[in-house]
Amino acid sequence: MDPRLFIGVGAFLLISGSARGSNDTTPLVIWHGMGDNCCNPLSMGAIKKMVEEEVPGIYVLSLMIGKTVVQDTESGFFKDVNEQVSFVCEKLAQDPKLKAGYNAMGFSQGAQFLRAVAQRCPNPPMKTLISVGGQHQGVYGLPRCPGESSHICDWIRKKLNSGAYTDAIQKHLVQAQYWHDPLNDDLYKQHSLFLADINQERVVNQTYKKNLMLLEKFVMVKFLQDSVVDPVDSEWFGFFVTGQAEKTETLQESALYKEDRLGLAEMDKAGKLVFLATDGDHLQFSREWFNAKLLPYIR
């Protein structure tokens, strides 16, 4: 989301000392959220630096969508998600440092985009996927989107409310591609260019399912005081019960899980799904928490 949401993260990350690790490490690929970019020193830049300090010798690739940080930021709002995923798949496949496999960590919308990479592009192999506040069942609202991109967010809200599933908005507005309207389920399934596809809402793509199940671990972090993601249960693959926008259901209560369209039920039984929760607003966590809860999946 907006890079200013990361200011607390950046401050926390600069406080603690670093631990020593092994040089024989699995590379890490990170993908930022809406309004952010690959290299912001208060967000992804701080995360990259912190991981490199905690795990000496690790190769960390912070994804840039475009040729500049400005293009990267704009892509998070306006570049077709399927095109972004294809771009990343090609970039990863061409990186010799990732040939033997990598771990992935996505922040906010970057998490669901990396899940699409796992489902569509198994080479090089993604070993562990860490979703930090990712909206895996989409969102139904943008309740808070502060900071320097607020004028863009206001415009996005108006477009989503007036016609999220029109061809023009679906094609050119990133947030429309994971807009999930529980009151118009058929419209969502028919016209969602991204989320309905990777969540197997129209047909079951067995390749998607097989590829996702290749993950060793799928870690999902939910922020209990999240004021950005609506509903927050989407961060654990839950969502509103279809037909209304008040009552939510968990992943385990959903048709996606019961029909096991993505293999999540089988992964859950095998101990591959990890559900973590932390107090705090969207993407707000300390270095101490990161080291204790997420670093073990990176080392």
Results as ranks from 00 to 15, higher is better:
C145M: 13
H136E: 11
L98T: 11
C89F: 06
D167P: 06
V85H: 11
C89T: 08
T128W: 07
A176C: 02
S131K: 06
A176E: 02
G106F: 02
G101A: 06
V174G: 10
H136M: 09
H180C: 12
D95F: 10
M64D: 01
G138A: 06
R144C: 08
A100N: 15
P146W: 08
C121T: 09
D95A: 12
R115V: 04
Q137M: 13
V85D: 07
K127S: 08
H180G: 00
E90K: 15
M105V: 03
I65P: 00
T166P: 12
G163Q: 08
Q94S: 15
I130A: 09
A111F: 03
I169C: 04
N123Y: 10
R157L: 06
P143K: 05
Y140A: 04
K159Q: 15
D72L: 03
V117Q: 08
S86Q: 15
A168H: 13
H136R: 00
G110M: 02
V117E: 01
Q119T: 05
P124D: 02
P143V: 04
T73N: 13
C145K: 08
E83N: 05
A168E: 15
Q135G: 07
H151A: 13
G141C: 06
P146M: 05
V69G: 12
T128R: 15
T73M: 10
P96C: 01
F113V: 11
S75L: 00
L114P: 14
L129M: 11
K159A: 14
S108A: 14
C145I: 07
F107K: 08
D80A: 04
L183M: 09
A176Q: 05
L160P: 03
S75T: 01
N184T: 06
H180Q: 11
S162Q: 14
G141I: 09
C121F: 05
S162H: 12
C89S: 11
A116C: 12
E74Q: 13
C145L: 10
N184H: 15
P96E: 02
K159P: 02
A118V: 15
D181M: 02
W155P: 02
Y178W: 10
G147D: 03
V88H: 03
S162M: 10
V117A: 01
H136W: 05
V132F: 13
Q94T: 14
Q135A: 13
